[in-house]
Simulated assay, not measured.
Amino acid sequence: MDSVCLDQNYSTTQLLSTERPLIDANSNDNFRTQLFLCEGEGRKGEGGLRTKGYFKHGYKKQNGNKWLVCDVNGQSGSPIELTLERDRDELPLITVITVVFNGEKFLEETIKSVISQTYPNVEYIIIDGGSTDGTLEIIRKYEHAIDYWISEKDKGIYDAMNKGINLAAGSWINLMNGGDVLNGVDIFEHITTNDPQIEIYFSDTIFINQNKKVLSKSSVESKSFIHQSMIYRRDLHKQYGLYLNFPKVTISDYLFFSNVLKRENSKKIDHPISIYRIDGISSNPSHYYQKLAVNLMCGHSTVFKVVVQLLYKIALQVFYYPPYKFLKNIFVNHE
């Protein structure tokens, strides 16, 4: 097997191969990796490096000098010649998945933050929900640096995420929604597979709302985390399944990680992984109420604490936000 570099300037175009990755066809798995998706309802397009015959693999060194190709489960196989400017013993394939719908305003920022990473073995998948704005034009503009993308109708954000996970050939996954960005160009340099106990890397998150940035703290104990600031092993979906996809349920990712994330299987990175734009379903009050319900049912919180948090949120909705919006409109209109 030979390694192909199409462009040194992008994290997604340096370590390519014309040989398809080995897919584990074990029917007992909760999901099965696919390289391409069968055409779904209302498909508007499909493209990327895979459709041109280029694929990705993970790599490990054997005895400190010879590189071996790894399958989607991280198991090493045939030898390969790699010439790298850095001294590393491993290059696990990291898959970044972006789900988007009518996201022309901020999608380009998301794409640039992924393909500009210094880590040379990144796989990038974009799942578009059949956008009607300029989203497809932006995707096509960068498809030379995108491994695979599709545009078609889906059954909600978690259905789109699950499509991306099924397409992931990487042993590590990061979900970076359209509009959110990686916070810096060296994020994936922190990932190592030397410690088999570590299954999740996570960090604090920078929230941005109308150009105002706030740091949101994350911890295992408080069950406070954002999936954009998590990089986790693909195999976790073999153990726990894909994200639940039900009408009006907006916390399937939170439900998944609240059960999976533990002190002994995770490591917190000091540098915030992502910058998260506060809008969409996560800003909806029902999203917050669903989180409280999960914390209570899973034993992550007490009844008293949940009641206090619920009353606080209701008080904000009734007594704070309406006057704030009213006064803001007065001053804005006055100016």
Score class of each variant (00 low, 15 high):
Met1Cys: 02
Leu6Gly: 04
Asn9Leu: 12
Tyr10Lys: 09
Thr12Tyr: 00
Thr12Asn: 00
Leu16Ser: 03
Arg20Thr: 01
Ile23Asn: 09
Ala25Asp: 09
Ala25Glu: 08
Asn28Gly: 05
Phe31Val: 04
Arg32Phe: 03
Thr33His: 02
Thr33Phe: 02
Leu35Cys: 06
Leu37Met: 15
Glu39Cys: 10
Arg43Phe: 00
Lys44His: 13
Glu46Ala: 10
Gly48Pro: 07
Gly48Lys: 02
Leu49Val: 10
Leu49Lys: 12
Lys52Leu: 09
Lys60Gly: 00
Lys61His: 04
Gln62Lys: 13
Val69Pro: 02
Cys70Asn: 02
Asp71Asn: 12
Asn73Val: 01
Asn73Ser: 07
Gln75Cys: 04
Gly77Ile: 05
Gly77Cys: 11
Ser78Pro: 14
Pro79Asn: 13
Ile80Gln: 01
Glu81Tyr: 12
Glu81Gly: 13
Leu82Cys: 01
Leu82Gly: 05
Leu84Trp: 08
Arg86Glu: 15
Asp87Ala: 14
Leu91Cys: 01
Val99Met: 11
Gly103Pro: 01
Glu104Leu: 00
Glu104His: 05
Glu104Phe: 01
Lys105Trp: 01
Lys105Val: 05
Lys105Phe: 09
Val114His: 01
Ile115Gly: 02
Val122Met: 02
Glu123Asn: 07
Gly129Trp: 12
Ile139Trp: 08
Glu143Lys: 07
His144Asp: 10
Trp149Thr: 04
Ile150Tyr: 03
Ile150Gln: 02
Ile150Phe: 09
Met161His: 15
Asn162Ala: 08
Lys163Leu: 13
Asn166Leu: 12
Trp172Cys: 00
Trp172Gln: 01
Ile173Val: 09
Asn174Tyr: 08
Met176Glu: 03
Met176Ser: 03
Asn177Trp: 12
Leu182Gln: 05
Asn183Leu: 13
Asp186Ala: 15
His190Lys: 15
His190Tyr: 15
Ile191Gly: 03
Thr193Lys: 10
Asn194Met: 07
Gln197Pro: 00
Gln197Arg: 06
Ile198Thr: 13
Tyr201Phe: 15
Phe202Trp: 13
Phe202Ser: 06
Ser203Asp: 08
Ser203Pro: 06
Ile208Arg: 15
Gln210Arg: 14
Lys213Ser: 09
Leu215Met: 06
Ser218Ala: 14
Val220Phe: 14
Val220Cys: 15
Lys223Tyr: 07
Lys223Gln: 13
Phe225His: 06
Ile226Trp: 14
Gln228Ser: 14
Ser229Cys: 11
Asp235Ile: 10
Gly241Lys: 08
Gly241Phe: 10
Leu244Cys: 09
Leu244Thr: 08
Asn245Thr: 01
Pro247Leu: 06
Pro247Phe: 12
Tyr254Ser: 08
Tyr254Trp: 10
Leu255His: 07
Phe256Gln: 04
Phe257Ile: 08
Lys267Ser: 11
Lys267Gln: 14
Lys267Thr: 09
Pro272Glu: 06
Ile275Tyr: 08
Ile281Ser: 04
Ser283Arg: 11
Tyr288Trp: 11
Tyr289Ile: 05
Ala293Thr: 06
Leu296Ser: 04
Met297Phe: 05
Met297Ile: 04
Thr302Gly: 12
Leu310Cys: 06
Leu310Gln: 04
Leu311Pro: 11
Tyr312Gln: 12
Lys313Asp: 07
Leu316His: 11
Leu316Arg: 10
Val318Tyr: 10
Pro322Thr: 04
Pro322Leu: 10
Pro323Asp: 09
Tyr324Thr: 04
Asn333Asp: 14
Asn333Thr: 08
